[in-house]
Each structure stands twice: as C-alpha cells, then as structure tokens.
Design a protein around this nucleic acid. Structure first.
Lengths: 146, 146
DNA sequence: TTTGATTAGTTGTATAAACAACTATATGCA
DNA sequence: TGCATATAGTTGTTTATACAACTAATCAAA
C-alpha cells in the first residue's frame, strides 16, 4: 500500500483523536461517578504536582502542553477548590510556585486508581507488544510536530 | 513486561492525547496561515458534509462524536460564516438537513491538501506497517470504550 | 547603571465541550 | 383517536483552549 494512499483514509481519526477523546471521557465519567468534582484537565495538572511539588506555572505549561493563559485559569480553578495554592517564589518574584493543599494531596491515590482502571479497560485485549509499538509511533508523531 | 506496570508509565500521554493534540494544532496553524478562517472543529464537520451532502445534525453528532448542543453551535457558526445552510426536512419537521454553500464546497480541496500535508509531516519516518498497527490499536481502544 | 530584550504571569475575547433542562415533532400502542 | 414516549434540535451554564495584548520582574549588554 502506498503510504500516501493509506494516510488519506485514516486522516479523520488521526486528526480528531477519537481514541484519546474516548479515554478522557471515560476517565471523566469515573471522576464524576466518584463525585470527586474535578475535570480531567485539572487532574492532568495535579498529576504533575503529585510527582513534583512546587512547580512554577511555566513548568506546568511545559509539562501539560498548555499555554500560559490556560494554566493561569486552571490554577485559578484549582485554587478556588482548595486543591492547590500559589506561593510567590522568593528568588524570583515573577514566579508562582504551585503547591498542593492537603485536600489536593488526598486525591492522588483514588484518582490514579481510576485512571489506571480506565487504561485497563481501554487496552483490554491489546497485546503489550502492540501497545508498546503504538506508544512509539505516537511519540514519534509528537516529536515530528514539536 | 507486566501489562499493568507498562500502563502506569504511559498513563499520562494516553489520557491527554499528546499526539493527536499536536496533529490538530499543526493543522489549525496551517488553516490560519492560509487565512481560511475556520477551526479544526468546523473542518471536521465540513469533512463529513463533503463526503455526503444533506446530513442531519444528529448524523453529524454521530459522525463527529459530539453531542447535540456542540453540533448546534458548530452549525450556528458555520452558518454565520456562510459555509453551510440549515434546510428543514420535508418528511420530518424536527430535522434540519445541513447543506454546503458554494463557499463551503470550495474549501474542500485546499483544506484536504493541508490535512494531508499535516499527516505527512506527522507520520514522516514512521513505516507504513507500524502506522497500520497503531491505527488498529486505536480502533480497538475506541471500541473498548464505546 | 541604564535601557532594551526576555521571561512569568494575567486579562480580554472568541470558540468549543459537557451536562441539564427545555420545545417541538413524530411514533406507537391501547 | 389519544396519550405516553422517543427523537431532533435549542438554550443556559461552567470549564477549557487559543490568541493577542498587557504588566511586572529579571537579565544582559553598552
């Protein structure tokens, strides 16, 4: 099959991200059912803060592939819900360091379990070797475009 | 490698759809540079109308995996830009059939070329066999979740 | 040291998505 | 026929994204 010929047929689902949209919706549904009252976008910010406390907003931009206004507003909403706190950096007064509150820390275990469940459901029946290859392709795509 | 162990590590990019987000952004940039003045979401609706004229809004919902309010507003905006027209169905007065205007029809060739370019750039250096396998995995994921 | 450029973050505006509640029309069955 | 139910589409609200324009702080080079 010619590469180009192939691509045309697959164009739509690659561009619209059918699969990742479905994964995100499933996780959102689980978060709602557990009455955790956070969005997947908020979860994706918390995810990085659980791994490393006290990231700056700019670091969150890089980690989550969002622009600065998006992070400003996500942090606004997370702060309103008392899940994180902005702390001005002492070294550089332009920078806000974002810290989890106790409430924000508490969400880690449960939401990570839900995320893990979501992926288990999504990748059910897919052999590990194929997942690995798929992951590689998606990483190459990302690298090609950034 | 244990399947479960694998998944935890990949959790983030699977859920956030890094790759498809990057593809969509690249296409949006091309549309902007060509001053076509449409969003990728609008493009995704037009895409289905180019394939088949006179779809109902509900059919557009199914085709684009969006809910009804989303399609209502996308069609609103496409109509404002004179790219499509709502035509009440004669058989069933609940239904709007959506038709392309001449202006909407004209966009097909150029935007499909840009979409094709985008995928060529995204999949550059990825062998066709791997793309095929990746496509299969993404389809299974989608089926698993819907 | 001063000034011009860079970096971090915010605000305004437009578009879009998800959910709930709503209207209007059609269908099906008693 | 008539009423309950299902279907198609709209509207309201909240959250998120992208882009542009903005402020404040820092850096760097003359």
């Amino acid at each position: 099959m010619h590469n180009n010929q192939f691509k045309k047929g697959e164009l739509y689902s690659f561009i619209t991200g059918k699969a990742s949209t479905a994964i995100a919706r499933r996780l959102q549904k689980k978060l709602n059912q557990a009455e955790l009252n956070i969005t997947i976008e908020q979860w994706s910010v918390l995810y990085h803060l659980w791994k490393k406390h006290g990231l700056s907003q700019q670091e969150l931009c890089n980690a989550t592939f969002r622009d600065k206004p998006s992070i400003t507003r996500l942090v606004d909403n997370l702060e309103k819900q008392n899940l994180v706190k902005r702390v001005p950096s002492e070294n550089d007064r332009r920078i806000n360091l974002i810290y989890l509150t106790k409430q924000g820390q508490k969400l880690e275990e449960q939401t990570m379990r839900l995320a893990d469940q979501t992926l288990t459901e999504a990748l059910k029946t897919v052999p590990a070797s194929k997942i690995e290859m798929c992951k590689e392709v998606l990483q190459i795509v990302y690298n090609n475009l950034t």
